[in-house]
């Protein structure tokens, strides 16, 4: 249905608490700044526009086309939103899309929502903006340039976002960098082509029907230079960092080990899988398991008790 086949929405449990919290802080700061910027525009028309466009991006993710075999391409939408709305509003729109996907459809976790907003909302938008503006500045600003810029922006936004996801996974000690980065990056270099093609066709359609919209979106992006710099910086940094991290995973892994495997070392009482037998359980562990089972039964009893007392009362059921 709406579940994305693209492993871009990180679920809870996959990022270390440190990485999640750091990225939450970064995202909150950027969103606060974007809100300020959008408010400074003083265009009250933009609020319904952003809400409805966020809904449109969400709905557009239902549109897919067959690539080969069972795989299908579909839209993330960061590039399209950036080109049509400008960077600040696009950050808010993507934040809403990613936020609702996590809150309502469990597409991506809540604790890692900050990281997901960072990847798809902030990195995706900044990279799209930088790529689009640079293409248009380097080439002459014609209809074709808009389309080329759209393709580059869309492809880069997917590719760089995926590198960012891979790096965060590696930093959290989930996947080793030398496996995660080529695998995730490689898949998304292909998926990005689909995103690029859809974005270009959509832009072509809008250029034909309402050319003013494409022009308006980029008319006067306040603080655009900052986004351009950040987007370019993020793209370059991730593009340079990823092969490095992938070639020398030791550095990243050391960080990851300090974070992840350290907590394993801290709790020797729970090494339930002893060195010599895998399924075997030693006596001490049997006791802890027993305690666990007793606790479970207790909690269940309380819950069932409460549920039972409530079941007695005939309650008006409002079935859907």
């Amino acid at each position: 249905m709406l579940a994305s086949p693209v492993p871009m929405h990180i679920p809870d449990g996959f990022l270390s608490v440190l990485v999640s919290v750091t990225l939450w802080i970064v995202s909150v700061l950027v969103i606060a700044y974007a809100l300020k910027r959008v408010n400074a525009d003083l265009d009250e028309r933009r609020i319904p526009l952003m809400g409805v466009l966020a809904a449109a991006i969400f709905a557009a993710q239902m549109l897919n086309f067959t690539v080969v075999g069972g795989t299908s391409g579909h839209l993330m939408g960061a590039a399209l939103a950036t080109i049509l709305l400008g960077p600040w509003a696009a950050i808010l729109v993507m934040t809403s899309v990613v936020g609702i996907q996590a809150l309502i459809f469990q597409d991506g976790g809540l604790l890692v929502l900050g990281a997901n907003i960072f990847n798809m909302g902030i990195v995706g938008v900044a990279v799209s903006y930088a790529a689009y503006q640079l293409t248009r500045t380097l080439l002459r600003d014609t209809r074709r340039t808009v389309l080329i810029g759209g393709f580059v922006a869309a492809w880069l936004s997917i590719f760089i976002t995926s590198l960012s996801v891979a790096l965060q996974l590696a930093l959290s000690g989930i996947s080793p960098a030398n496996i995660a980065i080529p695998a995730i990056g490689g898949i998304h270099a292909l998926i990005g082509i689909g995103e690029g093609l859809i974005t270009v066709s959509a832009l072509g359609f809008i250029l034909a029907a309402r050319p003013d919209l494409v022009r308006n979106g980029m008319a006067r992006p306040v603080g655009g230079k900052v986004v351009l710099g950040v987007g370019l910086g993020a793209a370059l940094l991730l593009a340079v960092l990823s092969p490095l991290a992938s070639a020398h995973p030791d550095g990243l892994e050391r960080v990851a080990e300090q974070q992840g495997f350290l907590s394993a070392a801290r709790t020797p009482a729970f090494t339930m899988i002893p060195d010599y037998v895998f399924p075997g359980v030693s006596n001490q562990n049997a006791a802890t398991i027993l305690a666990g089972i007793v606790g479970t039964v207790l909690v269940f009893a309380v819950a069932l008790g409460i549920a039972y007392t409530r079941r007695r009362k005939p309650t008006p059921t409002t079935e859907k």
Binding site: A56, L63, F65, G73, L75, L197, T199, V200, S201, F205
Partner: peptide, 8 residues
């Protein structure tokens, strides 16, 4: 598909 997205 792109045309559909644009029209949406």
């Amino acid at each position: 598909t792109g045309g559909m997205a644009g029209s949406l």
